[in-house]
């Protein structure tokens, strides 16, 4: 078990991160600097090819530990540099969940999936049992413990992957588009889980295209473009203000786009609840055509 960390501690600090994949001409990340606090839920958004997945790999320590390329700058995870560490060692601090759950499963049963990393960490069976029970509890997977993970639904598979990472009790959880294979119910369940984890002190970084959900759940949002941080801040600041382009409008949640069309003052509402408050006073009897 990791020692408790006081709230407000800096979990991740990236300083002038530059990375070019081996054989590539362009920089995937070009001078990214940001900090994430412990217990924070940070969403990373941006167009395809902006460097979101590369940033996730940097935050999880996979770059430079595992992925080959030219790396510059410094990544600190709880004050500890990721340079010179193997990803097996970094797993005690940070857990990574990728987009395709099928590629992350290796166990023949769900239990085996959860146990393998703990066995390799030399934990005694009693502690393994406790951690497995906790991970199953958090991810609500009790009823599939003995099943083959390959026989489960997409949402359940993704939860098994997350349970496998959580069983290792990392302080930071980095997820790269984990909801792409999930139905709306599966997405909601996953975001509830991530919010709960963040409230319990786990630092959560999520790369996501679904800005509507990030607007609702993230503490802060980082907008990435061409390998650079274009904007970072609370969701209403980043997603509720249009940039000086059509693309800048399109990156906003739909309720914010509607507010923009209605010529309301920015920052626009970014959640349905907030939009109902803002638009509420404009809706009066007879306002809707045909009433």
């Amino acid at each position: 078990m990791n020692e408790p960390i006081p709230p407000g501690t800096e979990a991740i600090r990236l300083t002038d991160i530059r990375f070019r994949y081996r054989g590539a001409e362009e920089l995937a990340l070009d001078g990214v600097s940001l900090a994430v606090q412990q217990g924070e839920l940070l969403g990373i958004v941006g167009p395809s090819g902006a460097g979101k997945s590369t940033l996730a790999l940097v935050m999880s320590g996979q770059i430079p530990a595992f992925v080959e390329g030219a790396f510059g700058g410094e990544t600190l995870l709880f004050g500890r540099t990721t340079r010179g560490w193997r990803s097996a060692d970094l797993a005690e601090i940070v857990g990574m969940v990728y987009q395709d759950p099928e590629a992350q499963l290796y166990g023949l049963t769900v239990e085996e999936e959860l146990v393998l990393g703990l066995e390799n960490r030399c934990l005694p069976p009693e502690e393994i049992r406790e951690r497995v029970a906790w991970a199953l509890d958090v991810t609500r997977l009790h009823d599939v413990l003995e099943k083959s993970p390959y026989a489960l639904s997409g949402g359940q598979k993704q939860r098994v992957v997350i349970a496998g990472v959580l069983a290792l009790q990392p302080r930071i959880l980095v997820l790269d588009e984990p909801t792409s294979a999930l139905d709306p119910r599966g997405k909601s369940g996953l975001y509830e889980l991530l919010t709960t984890l963040a409230r319990s002190g786990v630092t959560v970084v999520i790369v996501e295209h679904d800005i509507e959900r990030l607007a609702r759940h993230a503490d802060r949002v980082c907008w990435l473009e061409d390998g650079r941080v274009a904007a970072i801040g609370p969701p209403e600041e980043v997603l509720g203000r249009p940039a000086e382009s059509a693309a800048g409008v399109l990156r906003m949640p739909q309720v914010a786009q509607l507010a923009h069309r209605l010529d309301l003052a920015a920052p626009y509402p970014i959640t349905v609840e907030r939009a109902a408050e803002v638009f509420g006073h404009r809706l009066r009897p007879g306002w809707v055509e045909g009433d």
């Binding site: 990803s87 097996a88 970094l90 797993a91 857990g95 990574m96 990728y98 290796y106 990393g117």
Partner: peptide
């Protein structure tokens, strides 16, 4: 990457 991070 996943296997490596599980300490195999």
């Amino acid at each position: 990457r996943v296997i490596e991070s599980r300490g195999v």
